[in-house]
């Protein structure tokens, strides 16, 4: 973003990007709030098919919640270390955050495909529709966060910009390919996405790598300004990541802990 925002005029003393991230998170509360409200309104309305009380696995989800909470801890440690000047330790904690996030996504993918095997898809009943869209979009947010964090963590391990971009590009394509593979695994959940899409996604990743090869040439200098900028960006990623975590806290409570015994409509 341009530096007009960094000029003398700053009425509150806070960084523009940080302020915008908080506004975005406030807005995202409404986004998830709408999905969660829909889920709550539609409780006990499924006419058939697997019901929550038959299919939700509380112990498993507790473990995945714990994993996501620990990823939040890793995130705040990463930011803390980077702010204290320990750049390298901070990068490793960022990687740890991303890894724990990927583990959480693994739990989600397992849950989705397991439910599909048990006969619950978004088309089966209203519980399927509301559950999968709500947790699906949450998973999408997590995935975006993982990609962001991985790019961030890797991007400093290379000295020159060229290496950085190459690594970014290949990591991006690997992550995208993994997403593609995840999608093939959950195909029965989202039946309209044919396998060609999954492989196209991988192809996009390849194209991304090739594209990034064009994007760079010479080296950059490490200086205080760029370090501060990276610190700021990690803090932004941290805010986003914690938000995704608290949305999961709400979903876990509302869907799993409170509504786990939902069943057929009470006629």
């Amino acid at each position: 973003m341009s530096t007009v925002s960094e000029e003398h005029v700053n009425s509150t003393g806070v960084d523009n990007k940080k302020l915008m991230m908080w506004i975005f998170l406030g807005s995202d509360c409404l986004f998830f709030g709408s999905f969660i409200s829909t889920y709550l309104v539609y409780r006990n309305r499924s006419l058939s098919g697997p019901y929550p009380n038959e299919i939700l696995d509380i112990p498993l989800t507790t473990v995945s919640t714990f994993v996501l909470l620990m990823s939040s801890l890793a995130m705040v440690l990463a930011v803390s270390y980077v702010q204290r000047g320990s750049q390298v330790i901070g990068r490793y904690w960022t990687l740890a955050t991303a890894l724990l996030g990927l583990v959480f996504m693994g739990f989600q993918v397992y849950e989705f495909s397991h439910f599909a095997h048990l006969g619950l898809t978004p088309r089966t009943n209203i519980f399927g529709s509301t559950f999968f869209t709500m947790t699906g979009f949450h998973g999408g947010h997590v995935t975006f966060g993982v990609i962001w964090l991985v790019i961030f963590a890797i991007s400093r391990l290379a000295e020159t910009l060229k290496q950085k971009m190459l690594i970014v590009g290949s990591v991006l394509s690997v992550v995208i390919a993994m997403t593609g593979l995840m999608m093939t695994h959950t195909l029965d959940v989202i039946p309209h996405i044919p396998s060609i899409v999954a492989y196209s996604v991988f192809g996009v990743g390849l194209l991304g790598t090739i594209g990034t090869l064009f994007l760079l040439k010479s080296s950059d200098n490490q200086n205080i300004e760029s370090i501060k900028k990276e610190e700021g960006n990690l803090e932004l990623a941290g805010l986003y990541w914690h938000f995704v975590d608290i949305v999961w806290i709400v979903i876990f409570t509302v869907v799993y802990l409170i509504s786990a015994n939902d069943g057929a409509p009470l006629l």
Binding site: F31, T38, Y42, S46, I126, T133, I190, P265
Partner: peptide, 28 residues
């Protein structure tokens, strides 16, 4: 964000077979 969610729900109903607004399957 609210209309975004509503549009997503309608889109999924129309194209991907969900039942957000389909009274036959319990939607409203």
């Amino acid at each position: 964000p609210v209309i975004t969610v509503a549009l997503i729900q309608l889109q999924f109903d129309r194209l991907y077979g969900t039942h957000f607004f389909n009274p036959v399957m319990g939607g409203d």
